[in-house]
Simulated assay, not measured.
Amino acid sequence: MSMLSAAEQQLSASVMGSIEEPAVVTAQRSPVPPRSDHISFLEGHNLYVWGGCQCVDGQETFLPSDEIWLYDMESGVWSLRHMGGEVPPVLSQACGAYLQGMLYIFGGCDINGHTNTMYCVDLSGVEYSWRKVTDTVGGTPSPRVRHSCWVYKNRLIYFGGYGCKTVREVNNSKSFMVDETSWTTIGSDFFQFWGWNNEVHMFEPVSATWTEPQTQGQPPEPRSSHASTTLGHKGYICGGLEMQMIDIHCLDLVTWTWTQM
């Protein structure tokens, strides 16, 4: 895997701009369109499903980013809500996290390649309006896909992923496993190396601040496409690409100490 997959190269448009109308709810008994690589989470008795891709006649197409599906687990009814504001571009392999009524989307691939942008939307109100998170403090993580996020004490803590770095970033990093050399540009930055990382980055929404906690112990090998979850004050990861075995690691989110189970 280097650069974009065939499906990602087929992206021909992105959904951007402002949509003024409020969210519209349409009750449906039929399920949502089949999809993979989407984001889903629970809030109360509702399951939320956003984004992803769909395979039709052997071709993968990416689903709209200006809509979100809700499944009421008590009534068994699906509903579709439209989303406005600064709608994210069509994305694949992004990481979603839900915190205090807000859905945060970070990274992923858009029409231009790997990204490190963040969007958020308040799902607690009547209208669902996206906002691009800008004017952040601290160093934003490099572009990446297939990473994960732990939610702990009003913080979003991201781990791992696959992406690209500059020559300088690779030379200064001990947390990056090079996949292969590829040349591309993202904005005004020149990127050369692609690979996996085992970095830990923390985002605090209240202050819009990025930090990179210094961890202790033996960290997991760099990886992407792993499973993760938060239990108490600890974040767990399991498996992932480039791994020879299904391993489980735990990061204490208070002491920042890694432990392999």
Rank of each mutant, 00 (worst) to 15 (best):
Q214N: 13
P88E: 04
T185A: 11
C149A: 10
V145L: 12
G113H: 10
G76D: 11
S12Y: 10
E86L: 00
H147S: 15
A6T: 11
P89T: 07
D57H: 10
D122L: 05
G58C: 03
G232D: 06
L4V: 14
S5E: 12
H201E: 07
E127M: 06
V121F: 00
G160M: 05
H233P: 03
H249K: 07
S225V: 04
C149W: 12
A6P: 03
S36W: 04
E43N: 09
V133H: 03
S148Y: 01
H38V: 01
G108A: 07
Q54G: 06
V145R: 12
G58K: 06
E8D: 15
E180R: 13
G161N: 11
T257L: 01
Q218N: 11
S207H: 11
H82W: 08
D189L: 11
Q100V: 13
S92M: 02
T26D: 07
D110K: 04
L63K: 02
F193K: 09
L70S: 03
V32C: 06
P88C: 10
V137H: 12
I248K: 02
G107E: 00
N198F: 00
Q9W: 14
M118N: 02
G58F: 11
M1N: 10
S18L: 15
W130G: 13
F176M: 12
G44W: 08
Q192I: 07
Q59W: 11
I246Q: 14
Y128H: 07
I186Q: 09
V49W: 03
G107W: 04
P31K: 15
V77W: 07
T136A: 06
N154H: 10
E8L: 08
D110W: 01
S14C: 15
C149H: 06
P143S: 01
H45D: 15
H147C: 04
L251Y: 12
E199N: 05
N171M: 12
Q218S: 13
H38Q: 04
P222K: 12
S75G: 08
I237H: 05
G125Q: 13
A13L: 05
N198A: 01
Y158I: 12
Q218W: 01
M261H: 14
M243A: 09
E67C: 06
F62T: 03
Q260D: 06
S129Q: 13
L91V: 09
F41I: 09
N197V: 02
A208V: 08
G17V: 08
K234D: 01
G160S: 10
P64D: 13
I157L: 11
I68F: 09
V15M: 05
H226K: 01
L4T: 14
L42D: 05
P64L: 06
